[in-house]
Design a binder for these strands. Structure first.
Lengths: 182, 182
DNA sequence: TCGCACATGTAACGTGTTACATGATTAG
DNA sequence: CTAATCATGTAACACGTTACATGTGCGA
């Protein structure tokens, strides 16, 4: 799943500028698919325009830089939807957290405990984000996707809470008067 | 999480060749962290050796190409464990499946249903893999990681089964005598 | 007045993949 | 006889990130 596809997906729901697309991809509902930077979005949009899959119009604003507002063309819509008919690529999941966990036995118990706590906090923050995203679900499939995400994340949280003790027991006991990190 | 780190992690548990490291990263227990190709592993190993974090010895075999067996040095171990003390990078999850789902309302119900079925089958295959991996857990942290993975994947499977109807209802009704894909 | 939000874009760089080059043995 | 497994490595390429360049207005 490349930046190109994400641009088309976002524009499918309505026009947007490169600046807005990046925001959506980093903070918004699309942040669960990709994290794109300006350096990839602007060239992708330019290429898409050259291929006539999107068109742009410039809007001048007083006091702010001019905007270049993109929207999909009919052939852009067709191309995007057609791409969804093709065989899906596999999901990919990369986790530094799990690599850390795997080596818990080589690390001090206080560090393992601290990282486990951090992780639960991160999950709680994500859950709060999901709640906010769930409120304005402009796109019909959004709710399903958000609830799918929530379900997985809650399962992860429960697992951590239920099995944190086992992992800490595996870790190296803290020497002496370890009050340690929090 | 780069190839370099994965090489150190794998070698931490015992010596291996570049060929074996790739296999582990694609098929084995490390496939849940990364999918590395020869083109990235061999150069990474060479660089690691230049930095004295690993050493190699060549083993000649009759009938087969010579092997270059790598193992970590003391400073390699230290460097790896020290890197685990640093702030963890965030997990990243990319899913073409979820992008597909988001646009279910633009797609034929038969296609949506077929993809949902495929997905459940894929999850079942993963679950079977987890069972096999669970058998020989040489590393103490492995069991925890595998059970964490299993928990998340089972939650996803349950969600799909419980809410498949809603998604199919959202999709475009199949025209006419649609018996469609399976 | 300092830095942030708005807004677009490019150039250098990093990191990884795909395809190529090479070559023997073994199983179907 | 064909394909796969073992085994290492390089070169071309794709794709993306970081940092830079440029500039205004607004709130702390």
């Amino acid at each position: 799943m490349n930046v190109r596809t994400i641009c088309l997906a976002i524009l499918y729901d309505g026009e947007a500028t490169g600046y807005e697309i990046r925001k959506l991809s980093v903070e918004g509902e699309y942040s669960y698919f990709i994290d794109a930077s300006y350096g990839s979005i602007y060239p992708a949009l330019a290429k898409l325009e050259a291929e006539k899959l999107v068109v742009s119009r410039v809007e001048h604003q007083e006091g702010k830089p001019a905007k270049k507002i993109y929207s999909v063309t009919a052939s852009g819509r067709t191309a995007f939807i057609n791409s969804l008919f093709e065989k899906l690529g596999e999901d990919e999941y990369r986790s530094e957290f799990l690599l850390f966990v795997r080596f818990a036995s080589e690390l001090p118990a206080s560090l393992v405990e601290a990282r486990l706590n951090e992780r639960v906090e991160q999950i709680d923050a994500m859950l709060a984000d999901f709640d906010k995203l769930g409120e304005d679900h402009s796109h019909p499939g959004d709710t399903w996707v958000i609830e799918y995400g929530r379900t997985c994340v809650v399962a992860a949280r429960n697992y951590i809470q239920a099995h944190r003790g086992e992992l800490i027991a595996l870790a190296r006991p803290d020497s002496g008067s370890a009050a340690a990190a929090e």
